[in-house]
């Protein structure tokens, strides 16, 4: 008998309510194979421990609890350790967190937008500056015109 087959039989026999059925092949294999013997010991012990946890005594209040639950809904629902999370608190906090993030993004975009556009000059100030700059250019052009006229006149006089 192969170990694989022996261990499958062990899983079946241990769980059986009857006293373990006599299987000469399995018995022979268990006498020869230490690993399967250990597997059998471990599985039988574990199975017995788990099976011993089964409820064997009726709870006298069980029926009344069922009826009260039937009448009132889930009034008796238990609250367990990690399930004590407050859904309302959790939801509110998440909403608050999301609102804070959006507010931060909005404020940030208002305060820092000009820096991202590469200019620190506000729009109204910018138009005044542009005007002054244009005037300065016009003045420069006018002075250039005067200079050109001066040199042109000079050239004429020299020719004469």
């Amino acid at each position: 008998m192969k170990c694989r087959d022996a261990q499958k039989l062990i899983l079946d026999y241990t769980a059986s309510a009857d006293v373990r059925q006599y299987n000469p092949d399995l018995d022979r294999h268990l006498q020869e194979c230490i690993a399967c013997r250990r597997f059998s010991e471990i599985y039988s012990t574990a199975y017995q421990v788990v099976a011993a946890e089964r409820v064997t005594e009726e709870n006298p209040e069980f029926y009344n609890n069922v009826i009260s639950r039937l009448r009132t809904g889930k009034a008796n629902r238990l609250e367990y350790g990690w399930l004590k999370i407050n859904t309302f608190q959790f939801g509110t906090s998440l909403t608050g967190l999301a609102a804070a993030v959006f507010l931060g993004i909005w404020l940030g975009s208002r305060v820092f937008a000009p820096f991202f556009n590469g200019s620190v000059v506000r729009e109204d100030a910018a138009s005044g500056l542009q005007e002054a700059y244009a005037q300065e250019i016009m003045q420069q052009e006018a002075s250039l015109d005067r200079l050109e006229t001066y040199f042109f006149d000079n050239e004429k006089n020299e020719d004469k």
């Binding site: 946890e53 089964r54 409820v55 069980f62 609890n65 069922v66 639950r69 238990l78």
Partner: peptide, 19 residues
């Protein structure tokens, strides 16, 4: 209990089953 491994949960769910 066989599926939940917890006596309180098992009894709680069993009550729901009968309801």
């Amino acid at each position: 209990l066989g599926l939940l491994h917890n006596h309180e949960d098992a009894e709680d769910i069993a009550q729901d089953v009968f309801v």
